[in-house]
């Protein structure tokens, strides 16, 4: 029961977080382009593609997490996306580039604090994904056994 409550809370919190993160970026997309460019990883076309696509992806993922539909897929994709953010931010920080995180707006440089925060969110998403897969397999196994 406690696990189910925890899963429910994690799903709603992550969903809200992703919808909020996407909304903040969509509110000022040109400013978010500056933040993405600050990572010095992509040419202008790549920067524009990422800055324009990512916020919608975040909103869609947030809504999927909220709905709970195909949770094992949405939570896994959320964890992978957060893992990719974390790797990118860590590499940028290690390169000594003082880029803006761009996570929830702009004026927030990548720092040990932002890395710790994103790591924590990643752990929650990974935990939710593991739990969702475990539940999905649990549901799938009895019906398969029953068929035999």
């Amino acid at each position: 029961m406690a696990w189910r409550v925890l899963e429910w809370i994690a799903r709603l919190a992550l969903g809200a977080l992703f919808v909020y993160a996407g909304y903040v970026k969509l509110r000022n997309p040109f400013l978010f382009e500056l933040a993405v460019d600050g990572y010095r990883l992509l040419p202008p076309t790549g920067v524009i593609l990422v800055a324009r696509g990512l916020p919608w992806l975040e909103v869609a993922l947030g809504l999927l997490l909220w709905s709970g539909w195909k949770l094992h897929y949405s939570a896994t994709f959320t964890a992978l996306l957060l893992g990719a953010f974390l790797v990118t931010m860590t590499i940028t920080y290690a390169r000594g580039i003082e880029a803006q995180c761009g996570c929830f707006g702009t004026s927030e440089p990548i720092s040990p604090r932002t890395l710790a925060r994103d790591s924590l969110i990643f752990v929650v998403a990974a935990g939710l994904a593991a739990r969702a897969w475990w539940e999905w397999r649990g549901k799938a196994t009895p019906s398969a056994t029953g068929a035999i």
Partner: peptide, 15 residues
């Protein structure tokens, strides 16, 4: 708005 990094001209131009 504060931007703490070097950005490329096409991106700054759009802003």
């Amino acid at each position: 708005e504060k931007v703490a990094s070097a950005v490329q001209y096409p991106i700054l131009k759009r802003y």
